[in-house]
Simulated assay, not measured.
Amino acid sequence: MWLCSLSSRELSAIEADLVRAGWTFDDVPARLSYPALFAFIEHLPPDSAFSRVQDPETATWTTGVIVPNLLAELGYRLDVLVWQQSKDGEHNRRRPQPWERPWAKNKNTRRIGAGPIPASRWEAFWDGGK
């Protein structure tokens, strides 16, 4: 049986997809026949756990994970194209900024302190320097 030739990672992914559908491997063959299991596995959608394990690169493109980043990059590059045709672009000033990505850390975030306060200075810090 070809299921035995699958890695533990692939079997775990199939189990995750089965659980999403309301089954487990324990349901085979009592509630879910082997032909039904094979059809289930063969026709899993691109966003399934098994598809992501089998072909991670294709899954990245088909599930839309990469789309927000591509749209942000495309928007920024269009901004640059428009800027190049403007007076600011001719004089190389006020260049447009890249579009903010929600998952990227903001470099302009103000940070207070550089690390933990030594125990010897804690009391002075806590009391407000009194």
Rank of each mutant, 00 (worst) to 15 (best):
E42Y: 09
E15P: 00
T60D: 15
L71N: 15
E57H: 13
R9Q: 10
G128M: 00
P96H: 00
L78C: 13
R52W: 00
D27Y: 00
A119V: 13
F38I: 13
T109E: 08
Y34Q: 11
R31Q: 12
E90T: 06
T109D: 06
R94P: 03
I117M: 06
N108Y: 05
L6S: 04
D27C: 11
W2Y: 12
V82A: 02
P116V: 06
L81G: 08
G89F: 00
D27K: 02
W61R: 10
F125I: 03
F50V: 01
P118G: 12
S33P: 01
D88V: 00
H43T: 15
A72M: 01
V65E: 15
P116T: 08
I41F: 05
I112C: 07
W103F: 08
E57A: 15
G113Y: 01
Y76C: 02
L3T: 13
I117E: 08
A119H: 11
A16D: 04
I117R: 09
L71I: 12
K130E: 14
P98H: 05
C4S: 14
A39Q: 14
E73W: 07
R93T: 12
P45K: 00
P29R: 00
L81A: 14
D88E: 07
G129L: 02
D27I: 04
Q97D: 13
W122T: 12
H91V: 11
S120A: 12
W23V: 05
A36P: 04
A119K: 09
K105R: 13
P96R: 01
E73K: 12
L74K: 15
R95S: 06
K107C: 07
P56N: 07
F38R: 14
A36R: 12
V82L: 00
E10D: 09
G64A: 00
G128P: 08
E100K: 09
Y34F: 09
A16Y: 04
W99P: 04
E123K: 08
R20S: 13
T24N: 10
W61F: 06
K105I: 05
A124I: 08
G75W: 05
R52H: 10
D79H: 06
Y76V: 01
E123D: 12
W126M: 11
D55R: 09
R110D: 11
S33Q: 13
F40C: 04
F125E: 04
S8L: 08
R110M: 06
P118W: 02
G64W: 02
I112Q: 09
F40L: 01
A49H: 01
V19W: 03
E42C: 15
Q97A: 10
H43L: 10
T63I: 04
R110S: 10
E57D: 15
D79K: 03
V65C: 07
G89H: 01
I117C: 13
D27E: 09
W23Q: 13
R77G: 02
D27R: 02
L70G: 02
Y34P: 09
A59L: 03
R94S: 14
D127R: 11
L11Q: 05
N92R: 15
Q97P: 02
G22D: 13
A39M: 14
D47N: 14
P56L: 05
T63M: 01
Q84A: 11
K87P: 07
E100I: 03
P45E: 01
E90H: 11
A72C: 06
